[in-house]
């Protein structure tokens, strides 16, 4: 089943500002990353998927339904986490999520049960009875995620879920999203302007820029190249490069780093052996995936 499909989707505001231009994309269930710079049209696309904005032209379908003609049916099966602050400060998280669960059509007692469950899944326990106004940004983001989850949707639309979070908070949020996508069996569309962030958890990546599709593909297809090891020594970088080349390892220089493709675990031993033999101070040795960013690196400057 196709999760989301658009066909020549175009949205212009007032006939002048083009938010989406001839966007044709189709994605399968899973965790989908929607990346693009600010103003690339991500939020507009989400609003069209929710049936809140009518597209200027083109077709769109979500979970096999058309949000322009059956918005209520789509929204009943979709959970939405907005980008901006969206929580009334004087209500407690438990009350708010329960209330919103009822607005999604859950019976009263079910709404209360599922609200505590959803809050527990996002990691809010006793705090949920306190007014939201006193929460940290990380807790507020969790409440926003819980309210999107309370009515058990088949698809979550998350608009910049890591906004305003510190590095630890970002990691926790991303881990949570990954868990929702894999363990809970709910498809997730994660919007972000940070490619490095979403590429860690997505299985499909859709990149848009200026309302146009840059690329949409399974992430496995994008990062099919093997992993590389990054080696940094405090001195004697050239000597080490020569030594590794002599060991038939295809070494590449990147600033102070030496990049060596990782064939198997033996590669580690070869590098460590070479460093020990030359008696060089090893600064670091770590594994690096090919960044998806490299795939866009050549295209992005053309739009600046």
């Amino acid at each position: 089943m196709t999760l989301i499909a658009t066909e020549s989707l175009t949205k212009t505001y007032g006939g002048r500002v083009t938010a989406l231009a001839d966007l044709t994309v189709s994605v399968e269930p899973g965790i989908i990353g929607l990346v693009g710079a600010n103003g690339a049209g991500k939020s507009t696309l989400i609003k069209i998927l929710l049936g809140l904005l009518p597209p200027t032209s083109g077709r769109v379908s979500v979970l096999g339904l058309d949000p322009t003609t059956a918005p209520a049916a789509v929204r009943a099966r979709v959970g939405y986490m907005p980008e901006h602050d969206a929580l009334p400060p004087d209500l407690s998280a438990a009350e708010l999520v329960t209330h919103l669960g009822r607005i999604s059509g859950l019976p009263r007692t079910v709404a209360r049960e599922r609200a505590s469950e959803a809050l527990r899944h996002v990691g809010l326990y006793e705090e949920r009875y306190r007014p939201v106004g006193g929460y940290s940004t990380g807790m507020k983001q969790r409440v926003k995620l819980a309210q999107a989850l309370v009515h058990d949707p088949d698809l979550l639309l998350l608009d910049e879920p890591t906004n305003g979070l510190d590095p630890a908070g970002r990691d926790a949020m991303l881990a949570l999203i990954q868990r929702i996508g894999t363990e809970f069996g709910i498809s997730v569309l994660v919007c972000s302007h940070l490619l490095g962030e979403v590429e860690r958890i997505c299985d499909t990546l859709v990149a848009i820029d200026g309302g146009r599709l840059l690329r949409a593909d399974r992430i496995a297809a994008m990062t099919s190249a093997t992993d590389v090891l990054a080696v940094e020594v405090s001195e004697g970088t050239d000597d080490l490069a020569a030594r590794l080349a002599a060991l038939d390892l295809p070494v590449a220089r990147e600033g102070r780093l030496l990049l060596v493709p990782l064939a198997d675990d033996a590669t580690y031993d070869l590098i460590l052996g070479a460093v020990a033999e030359l008696d060089l101070p090893l600064h670091r040795l770590d594994q690096r995936r090919h960044r998806v960013a490299e795939l866009f690196a050549t295209r992005e400057p053309s739009h600046v």
Binding site: A72, V78, P82, D85, A86, L87, P88, L100, I103
Partner: peptide
């Protein structure tokens, strides 16, 4: 408080 998007993204006419 900006809570309205949370209402209008639900099946509420």
């Amino acid at each position: 408080s900006g809570v309205l998007p949370l209402y209008f993204s639900r099946p509420l006419p």
